[in-house]
Simulated assay, not measured.
Amino acid sequence: MLDEEASKVERILAVDDNPDNLVLLQTILEVEGYEVGLVDNGMDALEQVVQSPPDLILLDVMMPGMDGYEVTRRIRKNPEISYIPILLITAHHDASVVEGLDAGADDFIRKPFNHEELLARVRSMLRLKHSIDEQQKMARQREDFVSRLTHDLRTPLVAADRMLLLFEQETFCPISEDMKSAISAMMRSNQNLLQMVNNLLEVYRFEAGKKTLQMESCNMGLLVEEVVQELSSLAMEKGLAVNVDKSKLDPQDKTAGVVMGDRLELRRVISNLIGNAIKFTDTGSVNITVSETPANPHGNSWVIIEVQDTGYGIAKEDQGKIFERFRQGKNKRAGSGLGLHLSSRIIESHKGNIEVFSELGKGSVFAVRLPKQA
């Protein structure tokens, strides 16, 4: 594999409307062992880049029809084209260079160019290409490792969870109360680890673009009530009141609080936010409000879910980082730092946003905004 990579001939695409310039570039570069493709206009260059991406593009700025700036912009705006260095060739003043770099070019060389300078810039651009390709390759390998690892970890964790449940239910034999207590502790630890693995797997799917959302009408008011009922035992253990306020929704509006979304993923977000609120609150209450914004002139409005607690709160300097991946809170009860990151990715995929408002010692408010179903 290494030999194949070392022997790979680097491909350069030269784009210039002047045939003499193309011949000159081809002669200089082929002597150095590069494979050179020649194109005399911007449209053909774009087609060539899509069909057979080169390792480097040498691009003349001034061409009829479509100039080098526009070719550069179109290449950079096309998400299907992987990164390719673009070296602009120009005979104009500094302003043209600035425009080219702003358009997305990586470097430039002036006409008439020096033979050695051209080759030096070509080598520099190809080193940049190799460096970025290697980084992307390592990122793909890391993501693949995470994906495989999380899949492999889930199987024994699920099996262990089921086996522990059978022990707790005395399926095999009677057990003492002390043993039941120990098994319950093991089950909680196992479920925490399983949740972390599941979150990591979901984060990978979103970031790898492999997550498919099953969109349907979701009543967020009912969804919140379902999650509160599911988590009520946790709140009762701590003596916390959990209140749901839907009074701001119009009872005559059948679409009040309804969004288009993946019910399972939105439930995951609401469960994470309410679960965190209960987890980080020792006294007081957790209050969830579901409301809507007035419709704008285009008839669009937002469904807003606010989860407010009376817990520890979050320091101001940490609030801007709390949705980052693996960003753990400073509280000793903080988890892996994946839950809020995943929640943020889910809400963004629904074209919404999530914010936090907090003050140390006075609790926090997490606000989710989602487009209301039309």
Rank of each mutant, 00 (worst) to 15 (best):
M1H: 09
D3I: 12
D3M: 10
R11A: 02
R11K: 14
A14Q: 00
D16H: 06
D17T: 05
D17M: 02
N18Q: 12
Q26K: 14
T27P: 08
I28Q: 03
E30P: 13
N41G: 07
L46H: 06
L46E: 07
E47L: 14
V49E: 10
V50F: 07
S52A: 13
P54F: 00
P54D: 04
P54E: 03
L59S: 00
L59E: 02
D60E: 14
M63C: 10
D67N: 15
D67I: 07
Y69L: 13
R74Y: 01
N78A: 02
P79W: 05
I81G: 11
S82I: 01
S82N: 13
S82M: 05
I84Y: 09
P85E: 04
P85M: 08
L88D: 06
L88E: 09
A91H: 00
H92T: 00
A95L: 05
E99W: 00
G100N: 02
D102I: 01
D107R: 05
E116D: 15
A120M: 12
S124D: 08
K129Y: 03
H130Y: 01
S131G: 05
S131L: 15
S131V: 09
S131M: 14
E134V: 05
Q135L: 15
A139C: 02
R140V: 11
R140F: 04
R140Q: 15
Q141S: 13
D144S: 15
F145M: 13
F145G: 00
T150P: 02
T150F: 07
D152G: 01
D152K: 03
R154P: 00
D161G: 12
D161H: 10
M163I: 01
L164A: 05
T171Y: 10
P174D: 04
D178H: 12
M179Q: 15
I183Q: 06
M187K: 14
M187A: 12
N190F: 07
Q195M: 11
N198Q: 10
L200G: 14
Y204V: 13
F206Q: 12
F206H: 14
K210D: 15
C218R: 06
M220Y: 00
V228Y: 05
L231N: 08
S232V: 03
L234E: 14
E237K: 15
E237R: 15
L240D: 01
N243K: 11
V244I: 15
S247M: 05
K248C: 00
T255I: 04
A256I: 09
G261I: 00
D262V: 01
R268S: 11
V269M: 06
S271A: 13
N272R: 12
I274K: 01
N276Q: 13
N276P: 12
I278H: 04
T283N: 11
G284K: 08
V286W: 07
T289A: 10
A295S: 14
G299D: 08
S301H: 09
E306G: 00
Q308I: 11
Q308P: 10
D309I: 05
T310D: 04
G311R: 04
I314G: 02
K316R: 11
K316F: 08
G320S: 08
I322T: 02
F323A: 02
N331Y: 04
N331K: 06
A334H: 03
G335L: 08
L338N: 14
L338H: 10
S344G: 11
K351D: 13
S358D: 09
L360P: 00
G361H: 07
G361D: 01
G363S: 07
G363C: 07
V368M: 14
R369Q: 13
K372W: 08
A374K: 13
A374H: 12
